[in-house]
Amino acid sequence: MVTTDDRAQRLLESAAKFRAPFTLDPTLALYSPQDNVDALKHPRIAAWMRFVGQDYVPSLPEAREHVLLLLPCTRTKPYILSTEHRRINAALLAAGFAPTAPAEPRLLAFRTAEEPEALFSLAPLTHPYGVVVHRAVISEPLGLVPYEHMLDYPGGTSPAVLYDDPGLFEDRGNAVSPWRADSTALRVSAARWKWGPNEKRAYVEMHNAMATAVAEALGRFGHLYTRRISWVAPGLTHRSFVVAKAERAAHGIVATRQVGTERLALTGANDLLAPELALTALPTRLQCAEALARLATRLGRSQAEAAGHFGRGGGDATPLALPELLEDLLAAVLPVRVAKAA
């Protein structure tokens, strides 16, 4: 029998993902697709959606080129303190980028001795070659989180430092809320569950709501950027939020979900955006394959032996944070650097 005590245990696990003084709002702990759909009506989430979708406009310094860089949300809150974001941002700084504003004081408490203060700035990054990178995060249940509003926004504390949402990751086997009356999940082992029709239907609804939220925001201000890059792992939910129907096969992402006798379409932000505002989803599968080969060479192992290291991102991260893939990110963000090097 599943009880509310099970949710209480999950809340303890969620709270451990936060770095003090940032703390979890228990009403924003979302453990299933149904929790996610309900969250769209949560006052904090609804207010955030209105802000990003209707009011927010990025403040960008003048430059020859402006790049929007969408990064994935992370289990660590705030995101910038995660291993993944730390490594990505460190690579940008090492390539010559510098923040346009000082580090956020509340984040400096987490700085290690070898880390520059610039690593903890939430401001846009500028490069001497005339390129500005504006960072944002693609997130469920928030859609789009501009880096500069990771901690605060005009509505108060940003919900980006208040929530935990493992509820859309079906493959983990625990993205369920079995204490809910509408749960149709089936327990298949002591620690794993299989989604039922209600979970699958809610997943499609939430997935498409997130794609719509991203498209709504970029439909207003996407023209401010020369390039719009989504740096999210291939095959995963965040990539699925982005790519259009015609792109899905190349990215190894399904276009529909079977729910009972229905086949429901999955919509990506690029389906809803004008072609000139579309996001480029990177890294490609070819880039990942080539990065794995380079990693194997660096480690002196076979590709099969290096695959585990690749999948873990060399530690507590994802492949997105590996030096081999960060080479591809820098080439996309700063192609002029590659041209000058040649």
Rank of each mutant, 00 (worst) to 15 (best):
E13V: 04
A16H: 03
T23N: 04
S32P: 07
S32D: 07
D35V: 09
H42A: 10
P43F: 10
P43Y: 12
I45C: 05
M49V: 07
G53C: 02
Y56P: 08
S59K: 12
E65F: 12
T76R: 12
Y79D: 14
T83Y: 06
R86G: 04
A94M: 10
A98R: 15
A101M: 13
P105D: 12
A109Y: 01
T112V: 01
E115R: 02
P116A: 08
L125C: 07
L125W: 01
H127D: 06
Y129S: 15
G130E: 12
V137M: 11
S139E: 11
L144S: 03
E148L: 13
M150F: 03
D152V: 06
P154H: 04
Y163F: 15
D164A: 09
D165A: 15
E170L: 03
E170M: 07
D171P: 00
D171L: 08
N174Q: 10
V176E: 06
W179R: 12
S183Y: 00
V188H: 04
S189V: 03
W193Y: 13
K194M: 14
K194E: 14
K200N: 00
A202C: 10
V204W: 03
M206D: 14
N208C: 09
A209K: 08
A211D: 11
R227A: 13
R228E: 02
W231K: 12
V232H: 10
G235W: 01
V242A: 05
G252F: 11
G252A: 12
I253G: 01
V254D: 14
A255C: 10
V259E: 01
G260V: 03
T261P: 10
T261E: 13
T261Y: 04
L264N: 02
A269L: 14
N270T: 04
L272E: 09
A274F: 05
P275I: 13
L277R: 07
L286C: 03
R294W: 09
L295Y: 10
A296V: 14
T297S: 10
T297Q: 15
G300P: 02
A304V: 05
A306D: 02
A306L: 04
R312T: 13
D316Q: 14
P319E: 11
P319G: 03
A332C: 02
A332D: 02
V336K: 09
V336I: 15
K340P: 00
A342P: 00
